[in-house]
Design a protein around this nucleic acid. Structure first.
Lengths: 204, 204, 204, 204
DNA sequence: GATGAATGAGTATTCATTCAT
DNA sequence: AATGAATGAATACTCATTCAT
C-alpha cells in the first residue's frame, strides 16, 4: 500500500538485479511449459544460467518466486482492465474495452495466462485474487447498469460474477494456448455479446 | 481331509473389493481437499486404514487411482446431462434441465467437482473429456437454435462453447466449495438466463 | 547321515507332496531362467499354480527352497561321478568316465547346472560343496597316480584341484547354456585330454 | 566488489572428484565383501562417508557405479596380460608371463578379482568381456602352436579356451580369497604346467 | 492344507535447501 | 554475490512373510 521508495539507483541495472530478473524469466517460461510442480529450483537456475544455490540468494523458496511472477502479472492485468473500464462511461463500450484489454493481455503474455489459470495448488490463491479483481470490475459495471434499469434484479450478483469470470478465464486460457484456434476479433465479440446480452432483462 | 467348501457369495462384498473401495473413497476425499499433487499414496492408504503397501495391490500408482475416480465421476455426470438434454425438445426447457442436472450433480458430488475442475496436471485429460462432453451438449442445442433462427451466425461456435463451459465449470466449482454461497435455484437461474440470452441475437 | 525312514505311504503321492514338488520344479526352472535374485516367492507360487501363502507351508523361506533344489542336484551329481570313478581301476578310463558322467549330467539337467554355477550369493555355499566333491574325486585319482609315479610331485595338489574344478565348471556351464556350441564328444575329449596330460610329469 | 578469482587447480583434486573416488572405493570393497546384490546405494554412501543422496550426484544408479569399477579393472587387467604376452615370442615364456601377470594382478587387486568373477548377474557382461579377452590370448598362442605342429588338431578350440579360462578364473579367485592357501609360485607353476602340457599332443 | 489379501520393513530415488569455498 | 557439491527428508514402490478365512 506504501509507494515504493524512489532510490537514486544507477541507470545500469545492478548485476544482482539482472540475475534476479533472469530467474524470474526462467521461472515464468518453465512454469508455463510444465506447470509449477513439474519444475525444480535447479531447472530454473539452469535456464537462468546461474548456479543452483544462487536461486536462494534471491528468493526464499520456489513459492516466493512464483508469487512474485504472479503478482507482477496480476498488477499488470489489473492496470489494463481498470484503464479500459475507466475510459468509458457507455456500458457497451466499457464492456468491449474490457474484453479487448483482456484479450490483448492474453496475446502478449501467454505464459502468464497459462500460469495464472493453471489451477496448480500454489496458484490457487493468486487465481482467486485475479478473479476477484475481474469480479470487482463486473460489480462496478453492474451497479451502473442496475441504476440504468438494465439489470434483471432477480439474478444473484455473486453467481453472475462467477459465471462471467469463469467464462473469461476459460476462453482466454483456451485461446492463449493456441491463438490459431480462433480469430482475435471473434473472441472479443463473443465475450462482449454474452456479457451484454446475458445481463439484459429476460423476456419471460 | 474334507474338500474345501466352495462358496459363492455374490451378495457380500469380498474383502478385496472393500479395501479397494476404501482406497477409492480415501483418494476422492483427499484429492478434493489437497489436490492431486498434495496427496501421497501413503496418505491415501492411511486414511483408508490399510498399510502403505496395500495401495499397490489395488492400483499401479496414484495416477491409476485418480483415473478410476475420475472415470466413474465423468460417466455419471455424462449420463445425467444426456438424460436431461434428451428429455426435452423445447430449447428453454432443455437448457434448464441441463443446468439443473449439473447443479444436482455438484450438490451430490462436491468432491468430484473439485477434483474434475482442479486443473491439476494429472486431471488435464479428464477435464478435457468432461468439457468436451459439455461442449457437445452445447453444439446440439445450438444447432437447433440456428435452425430456429435464434442464433447469431457471427459468433464463433468454438469460442461460444468454451465460454459456456468455462461459466459452468467455475460456477459449479465455486458453489460446490460452499453451497451457502448462493441458493441452488439462483445458481440454476443464472446459468439458464445467460445461456439463453447469450445466444440470442444481439440488438446492437 | 541316517537312512530315511521307510514309511508305508500310499502309492499315490499325497496332495501335499505333489504341491511341494510343483514348487520345487517351478523354483528350479525360474532360478535357471532369471537367477535367484530375479525370482520372487510369488513368482514361484504362481508358476507352481498355487497361492502365494502356500509357499510357506512347504518351505521356511526362499533360501530353503533353493537349498533343497541344490541338495538334490548335488546328491545326484555326486552319485554319478562316484559311480563312474568307482567303475574303473585304470586311470585313463576313470578320468574319461568321470568326464562323461559330468557332461551327461549337464545334458540332462541344464537347469541345475545353471543354478549351481550361477555364483549367486545364495549359491556360494552350495557351489563350494559341489566343487569340494569334484576336488575330492581328483584327490582320489591323484593319489593313485602318485603311487604309479605319474604325477609330478612339484605341483601343489590344492591348486591343481582348483584348476581342474574351475575348468570343469566353466566348460560344463558354458556348454549347458547352449549345447550347440560344441559337440558332446569334443567336450568330453577336451576335458579328458587336459586332465590326463596336465598331470603327466613335465619334460622341462 | 572485486571480481572472483578464477583459479585453475589441476594438481589438487576437486572436492567433487574426491567424493566420486570415495564412492568408487567404497563400492569396490563392499561389492567384494557382499556381492553386488548384497549392497545398497545407502551402504556405499555410508562407507564413503557421504549422505545417501550424494550417491546420485555421481552415479545414475548402482549398476553405473559397478560398471565403472569393472571397466577400470578390466582395462588394467587387459593391459597387463597383453603386455606380458606381447613381450615373448617363445611359447613357454609367453605362457609363463601371462600366468605371472594374472597372478600379479590378483595379488594387487583382490577386491577386483572377487568382483569380476563373482558371477553376479550384473557382472555377467563384464565377466564375459574379461573372459573373451583371456580366450583371445589363448587363441593367439594356440595358432602359433598349431603352426609349430604342437597342437592336437582334434581338440575343439572353443572348448579348450573355455577350459583354460575357467581354470584361470577359479584358481585366481580361490587364491585371491586367501593368498595363504598356496604359494604364489606354485600357483603360477600349476597354471603354466597345465596350459603347456594340456595342449601338447597326447600319447595315448 | 490351501488361499490370497494384507502387512511393513527395506530400498531406490528425487529435490528443496544449506553452506564452505 | 556467486558457486555447486552436499545434505537428508520425503516419497514411491517392492516383496518376503503372516494370518484370518
Amino acid at each position: 500500500m506504501t509507494a515504493p521508495e524512489i532510490t537514486h539507483e544507477p541507470l545500469r541495472r545492478t548485476r544482482r538485479a539482472q540475475t534476479r530478473d533472469r530467474l524470474l524469466d526462467a521461472g515464468q517460461s518453465l512454469f508455463a511449459e510444465r506447470g509449477i510442480h513439474g519444475v525444480t529450483s535447479h531447472d530454473i537456475a539452469k535456464r537462468a544460467g546461474v548456479a543452483a544455490g544462487t536461486f536462494y540468494l534471491h528468493f526464499k523458496d520456489k513459492a516466493e518466486l512464483f508469487r512474485e511472477i504472479a503478482d507482477v502479472a496480476v498488477a499488470e492485468l489489473r492496470r489494463r482492465l481498470q484503464q479500459a473500464t475507466a475510459a468509458h462511461t457507455d456500458i457497451a463500450l466499457g464492456v468491449r474495452a474490457h474484453a479487448t484489454a483482456l484479450v490483448g493481455f492474453a496475446e502478449e503474455h501467454r505464459d502468464l495466462i497459462r500460469i495464472l489459470f493453471s489451477h496448480d495448488s500454489e496458484a490457487a490463491q493468486i487465481e482467486s485474487d485475479v478473479l476477484d479483481q475481474l469480479a470487482h470490475n463486473i460489480e462496478v459495471a453492474r451497479h451502473r447498469r442496475i441504476e440504468s434499469g438494465l439489470m434483471p434484479a432477480e439474478l444473484d450478483p455473486a453467481v453472475l460474477a462467477q459465471a462471467l469470470v469463469g467464462m473469461w478465464a476459460r476462453v482466454v486460457a483456451w485461446w492463449a494456448e493456441d491463438p490459431a484456434r480462433a480469430e482475435r476479433d471473434h473472441v472479443i465479440e463473443t465475450l462482449v455479446r454474452i456479457q451484454l446480452s446475458g445481463t439484459h432483462p429476460g423476456r419471460d
